[in-house]
Nucleic acid binder design. Structure first.
Lengths: 338, 338
DNA sequence: ATGAAAGCGCTAACAT
DNA sequence: ATGTTAGCGCTTTCAT
């Protein structure tokens, strides 16, 4: 169907090898013949087949990226960072959205393996998904470089770029405490997500450090989606012993929380205070004074891709490297105790 | 390096063909041999190479999707819709973000062609990018089905799913007029974008219909990004003859507009009214009463993928089909003239 | 400077 | 029910 290298060879009266040479700028080709070939390529509108090339070269120049939710600006930014570095390295990318589902994560991994990608950057949905971890291990043993981004995987030893989540929520909760809050609720992610776990830990640590009792009634497990933030906030504001502040473990749940508060006509920080993980640019644009614990997402994406690039270059024997970046505190007033 | 079908064949003492048969569930294989093979596959941890398979089958089972900005929730939703249908059809997807750049659009098209994708869904950045259109034409002539989504391409005749943009902004502006507004500014997209053009046209139509003069000083061209909405709004509120309402042609610019208004302490709709294209779920979550002209994005994505599926099935001779969906008016109060 | 030919991993006739 | 073999489109060694 499509035009092949053979057609070009015939049309320009040379061999396949010579065409391949001009295609790849390799070896010697007389200027005259090169021109003939280039012309034939243009006339026949030839485009090389990456498929055939990959098979022959035994390399695809494609990497795989797996994230739980493309529509979440947090991952959007990570992806932007990855893309920037990947583009420069002339690597193409297959992007997989797992929709926060472990099952789809496995599917994505399988897809990527079948496509013979050179390496993988993954932001795992959960860190206790055993089948997912096993698959990652298998891939690693097959010599495929894996770089974790933003989420860890239990009992594993992959390179990766992470955020110091414990530190982040510790500091965030500390700010609340310093403002005078003693009753602080937390909406964290699924218990099997490492970042969620760490963010909860930082929360507890801050309370303990300040000799404030950690109350189970104040700990709520969401699923990182907006709706769970909404529902859990509704629960929180119905609590008999209502907290004076809510600590939120991710951006989407923060949105849900704000929606619930709005509906209940509860004003921040007049009626309740808020401290939230993951900056929401939009809220800041809107002049909503929510205080954030913000991750350097673009930077994280870039770092992850650079790590992958290193592994790709040094082939098999790249060492495991784990980079931990610190979040930044953006105080805008929502943490105040009025 | 990797395990191949040959290794499986050897290990289980059969021929390549037989292994291929169990892999593809085609032809007859004795249960006994099948088991041997399946076992070998598991033991050696074999995963077929999509590359080799594609080359041999002359089909990749991959489609390409090109959008101007993954991080824009509008396109995020379109992609979700596409993905849903594509998943069901067992088609994989290469997603390309052009960053609103015509150049990157061409690059993406080339990449997709090299990857021998089966079809393309594209949301074009501009409709006057001649090289882009030419490339699309070439691909179409090569027998690759093209489906436009949400944006048209000048002088072309591709299938596609579109929004009735003229109708949308006509109705939106009409609402403003009915509220009593006479001085209505518009921030539209780049002049070479079809949707932007149509949205401007609907705006003009509504004014003319109501015998309101169309004033050039009230027409502003942005680039669909937040910053341009911000900058242009700042200009608008400095106008001597300040408009009482602003009509916005997309979601990102609306954000910028709101940011500018916030900074200037201008309240909506008390001081100025707003009507905006593209629903921003976030604003609604936040209880901000902005009125929208909203596109059925998920539906549009699905429709586009279904269209592509049809073309894929009927091979070469699918006819051009253009689906136009109507936007929905979501009135929340920001259109009021106070 | 160019060509011949083997091979990348798989599929799909065709044979047996 | 299974095997043989000729490609798929390209790269790359080895000749010439």
């Amino acid at each position: 169907m499509a035009v092949t290298i053979k057609d070009i060879a015939i049309k320009s009266g040379v061999s396949l090898a010579t065409v391949s040479r001009v295609l790849n700028d390799s070896g010697y080709v007389k200027d005259e013949t090169r021109e003939k070939i280039v012309q034939a390529i243009e006339e026949l509108n030839y485009t090389p087949s990456a498929i055939a090339r990959s098979l022959s070269r035994k390399q695809t120049n494609v990497i795989g990226v797996i994230v739980p939710d493309i529509n979440n600006p947090h991952f959007g930014e990570l992806i932007k960072g990855i893309t920037k570095v990947a583009d420069n390295a002339n690597l193409n990318m297959i992007l997989c959205d797992t929709d926060e589902s472990g099952e789809k994560e496995i599917k994505a991994l399988k897809l990527l393996q079948e496509q013979r990608i050179e390496g993988i950057i993954i932001s795992p949905t959960s860190n206790e998904n055993d089948s997912s971890r096993e698959y990652l291990d298998t891939l690693k043993n097959l010599g495929i470089p894996i770089v974790l981004l933003d989420g860890d995987v239990k009992n594993s030893n992959f390179s990766g770029v992470f955020l110091d989540n414990i530190k982040g929520s510790y500091e965030g909760v500390n700010v609340l405490i310093n403002e005078g809050h003693k009753k602080i609720a937390i909406i964290t992610g699924r218990i099997n997500s490492k970042p969620a776990k760490d963010r909860l830990e930082g929360y507890k640590k801050a309370l303990q450090k300040n000799k404030i009792e950690v109350k189970d009634e104040y700990i709520f497990y969401g699923d990182y989606r907006e709706d769970s933030g909404y529902e859990l906030t509704k629960k929180i504001i119905k609590l008999k012993d209502k907290p004076t502040a809510i600590f939120l473990s991710n951006n989407m749940m923060t949105l849900g929380c704000i929606r619930a508060l709005n509906e209940a006509k509860i004003k921040v920080p007049r009626d309740i205070s808020i401290m939230a993980f993951d900056k929401l640019q939009i809220l800041m644009s809107l002049g909503m004074n929510i205080s954030f614990i913000s991750a350097p997402t673009l930077e994280m994406g870039k770092s992850a891709m650079k790590l992958l690039l290193e592994s790709l270059k040094s082939k098999n024997k790249a060492q495991v490297k784990r980079i931990v970046l610190s979040p930044e505190l953006l105080l805008n007033g929502s943490e105040k105790l009025v």
